[in-house]
Simulated scan of single mutants.
Amino acid sequence: MSIESRLADLGVSLPDAPAPAANYVPFVQVGDIVYVSGQISNGPDGLITGKLGADMEVEAGAAAAKTCAISLLAQVKAACGGDLERLVRVVKLTGFVNSIADFTNQPQVINGASDFLVEALGDAGRHSRSAVSAAALPLGVAVEIEGIFQIK
Protein backbone atom coordinates (compact mmCIF):
# COMPACT_ATOMS: atom_id res chain seq x y z
CA MET A 1 0.00 0.00 0.00
CA SER A 2 1.32 3.45 -0.88
CA ILE A 3 2.17 6.03 1.78
CA GLU A 4 -0.53 8.35 0.43
CA SER A 5 -3.09 5.50 0.68
CA ARG A 6 -2.08 4.78 4.27
CA LEU A 7 -2.41 8.46 5.11
CA ALA A 8 -5.85 8.53 3.51
CA ASP A 9 -6.86 5.48 5.56
CA LEU A 10 -5.80 7.47 8.65
CA GLY A 11 -7.94 10.40 7.51
CA VAL A 12 -4.88 12.55 6.79
CA SER A 13 -4.45 14.67 3.69
CA LEU A 14 -1.08 16.36 3.44
CA PRO A 15 -1.30 20.14 3.14
CA ASP A 16 0.91 22.09 0.77
CA ALA A 17 4.38 22.35 2.27
CA PRO A 18 4.43 25.43 4.54
CA ALA A 19 6.62 28.29 3.32
CA PRO A 20 9.47 29.42 5.59
CA ALA A 21 8.65 32.34 7.87
CA ALA A 22 12.11 33.95 7.72
CA ASN A 23 15.43 33.81 5.87
CA TYR A 24 15.93 30.04 5.59
CA VAL A 25 14.88 27.20 3.31
CA PRO A 26 12.27 24.61 4.30
CA PHE A 27 14.61 21.69 3.57
CA VAL A 28 18.10 20.87 2.36
CA GLN A 29 18.99 17.68 0.53
CA VAL A 30 22.50 16.24 0.85
CA GLY A 31 22.82 13.01 -1.10
CA ASP A 32 19.94 10.78 -0.04
CA ILE A 33 19.32 12.68 3.21
CA VAL A 34 16.76 15.49 3.56
CA TYR A 35 17.04 17.85 6.52
CA VAL A 36 13.67 19.50 7.17
CA SER A 37 13.54 22.79 9.07
CA GLY A 38 11.45 22.98 12.22
CA GLN A 39 7.72 22.71 11.59
CA ILE A 40 5.47 24.44 14.09
CA SER A 41 2.15 23.15 15.43
CA ASN A 42 -0.46 24.33 12.99
CA GLY A 43 -3.86 22.76 12.42
CA PRO A 44 -6.85 23.42 10.17
CA ASP A 45 -7.93 26.26 12.46
CA GLY A 46 -4.51 27.92 12.57
CA LEU A 47 -1.59 27.91 14.97
CA ILE A 48 -1.80 25.62 17.98
CA THR A 49 -0.47 27.72 20.81
CA GLY A 50 0.00 27.09 24.50
CA LYS A 51 2.44 26.19 27.22
CA LEU A 52 2.54 22.60 28.43
CA GLY A 53 2.10 22.37 32.18
CA ALA A 54 0.38 25.76 32.31
CA ASP A 55 -2.56 26.04 29.92
CA MET A 56 -2.17 22.85 27.87
CA GLU A 57 -2.36 19.16 28.79
CA VAL A 58 -0.09 16.41 27.47
CA GLU A 59 -2.81 14.98 25.19
CA ALA A 60 -3.34 18.35 23.50
CA GLY A 61 0.43 18.74 23.15
CA ALA A 62 0.66 15.30 21.53
CA ALA A 63 -2.06 16.31 19.06
CA ALA A 64 -0.07 19.46 18.30
CA ALA A 65 3.05 17.34 17.73
CA LYS A 66 1.12 15.20 15.23
CA THR A 67 0.41 18.33 13.16
CA CYS A 68 4.15 18.99 13.09
CA ALA A 69 4.74 15.47 11.75
CA ILE A 70 2.14 16.03 9.03
CA SER A 71 3.95 19.23 7.99
CA LEU A 72 7.27 17.38 8.03
CA LEU A 73 5.85 14.80 5.60
CA ALA A 74 4.51 17.63 3.42
CA GLN A 75 8.05 19.06 3.24
CA VAL A 76 9.50 15.64 2.41
CA LYS A 77 6.93 15.27 -0.36
CA ALA A 78 8.01 18.65 -1.75
CA ALA A 79 11.67 17.61 -1.51
CA CYS A 80 10.80 14.46 -3.47
CA GLY A 81 9.16 16.42 -6.30
CA GLY A 82 5.68 15.40 -5.16
CA ASP A 83 6.45 11.66 -4.99
CA LEU A 84 6.22 10.64 -1.34
CA GLU A 85 6.99 7.05 -2.35
CA ARG A 86 10.63 8.14 -2.57
CA LEU A 87 10.71 8.31 1.24
CA VAL A 88 12.85 5.47 2.58
CA ARG A 89 12.71 6.18 6.30
CA VAL A 90 12.52 8.73 9.07
CA VAL A 91 16.04 9.00 10.51
CA LYS A 92 15.67 11.45 13.41
CA LEU A 93 13.27 13.93 14.96
CA THR A 94 14.16 16.73 17.32
CA GLY A 95 11.10 17.99 19.18
CA PHE A 96 10.84 21.24 21.12
CA VAL A 97 8.01 21.61 23.63
CA ASN A 98 6.90 25.02 24.90
CA SER A 99 6.62 24.20 28.59
CA ILE A 100 6.98 25.49 32.11
CA ALA A 101 10.30 24.97 33.91
CA ASP A 102 9.29 21.88 35.89
CA PHE A 103 7.36 20.11 33.10
CA THR A 104 8.99 16.72 32.46
CA ASN A 105 6.67 15.01 29.98
CA GLN A 106 8.32 16.24 26.76
CA PRO A 107 8.71 12.64 25.51
CA GLN A 108 4.98 11.98 25.87
CA VAL A 109 4.21 15.16 23.91
CA ILE A 110 6.59 14.30 21.06
CA ASN A 111 5.10 10.78 21.01
CA GLY A 112 2.23 12.41 19.13
CA ALA A 113 4.57 12.82 16.15
CA SER A 114 6.48 9.57 16.63
CA ASP A 115 3.38 7.42 17.02
CA PHE A 116 1.77 8.99 13.96
CA LEU A 117 4.86 8.43 11.79
CA VAL A 118 5.07 4.76 12.80
CA GLU A 119 1.34 4.33 12.21
CA ALA A 120 1.59 5.95 8.77
CA LEU A 121 4.92 4.51 7.63
CA GLY A 122 5.35 1.27 9.58
CA ASP A 123 8.97 0.38 10.31
CA ALA A 124 10.15 3.15 7.97
CA GLY A 125 8.64 5.58 10.48
CA ARG A 126 10.76 4.33 13.41
CA HIS A 127 13.44 6.90 14.20
CA SER A 128 15.94 8.22 16.69
CA ARG A 129 14.72 11.24 18.62
CA SER A 130 15.29 14.04 21.08
CA ALA A 131 12.51 15.74 23.04
CA VAL A 132 13.44 18.93 24.87
CA SER A 133 11.77 21.77 26.70
CA ALA A 134 11.78 25.38 25.52
CA ALA A 135 10.88 28.45 27.53
CA ALA A 136 9.13 29.85 24.45
CA LEU A 137 8.65 28.92 20.80
CA PRO A 138 7.96 31.11 17.74
CA LEU A 139 4.52 32.73 17.71
CA GLY A 140 3.71 31.03 21.03
CA VAL A 141 3.21 27.62 19.41
CA ALA A 142 3.09 24.57 21.64
CA VAL A 143 5.47 22.37 19.63
CA GLU A 144 8.14 22.62 16.94
CA ILE A 145 9.77 19.58 15.37
CA GLU A 146 12.60 19.26 12.86
CA GLY A 147 13.42 16.06 11.02
CA ILE A 148 16.00 14.13 9.07
CA PHE A 149 14.76 11.73 6.38
CA GLN A 150 16.31 9.30 3.92
CA ILE A 151 14.95 9.28 0.38
CA LYS A 152 15.70 7.39 -2.81
Rank of each mutant, 00 (worst) to 15 (best):
K152W: 05
M1Y: 06
P138I: 04
R126M: 13
A78D: 11
G147N: 04
A62C: 05
V34T: 03
N23D: 15
S133P: 04
V132C: 08
E119H: 08
G43F: 05
P26D: 11
I151R: 02
L72W: 00
E144S: 14
G95W: 08
A19S: 14
K66L: 07
P138L: 04
T104Q: 12
R129Y: 15
P15H: 06
S114L: 13
K51Q: 15
A101Q: 11
D9T: 12
V143P: 03
D32P: 11
Y24Q: 09
D55M: 09
Y35H: 14
T94N: 14
A134R: 13
G43M: 06
D45N: 14
L139M: 14
D45G: 10
Q106M: 13
E144T: 13
S128K: 14
V12Q: 06
R129N: 13
N42A: 10
G147Q: 05
G31F: 08
A74R: 00
P107D: 05
A17N: 02
L7Y: 07
A21W: 07
A17G: 04
E4N: 09
D45T: 12
Q39D: 02
Y24E: 11
A60T: 11
S114A: 14
F149Q: 02
A136D: 08
R6P: 01
D32Q: 14
G43T: 06
T94P: 00
F27G: 01
D9K: 15
K77D: 03
V28Y: 03
R89L: 00
E4G: 07
D55F: 09
G50A: 10
Q108S: 14
E119S: 15
K77H: 01
G125R: 06
A22R: 11
G61L: 00
S99C: 15
S71L: 09
A8W: 02
A113Q: 04
E144Q: 14
F96A: 12
G46E: 02
S2F: 01
K92G: 05
R89M: 02
V30G: 02
A65P: 02
A79K: 03
E59M: 09
G125M: 01
A136C: 02
L84A: 08
S13Y: 00
S114Y: 08
A17S: 15
V109Y: 07
A78C: 04
L73I: 04
I151D: 09
Q150D: 09
G38V: 05
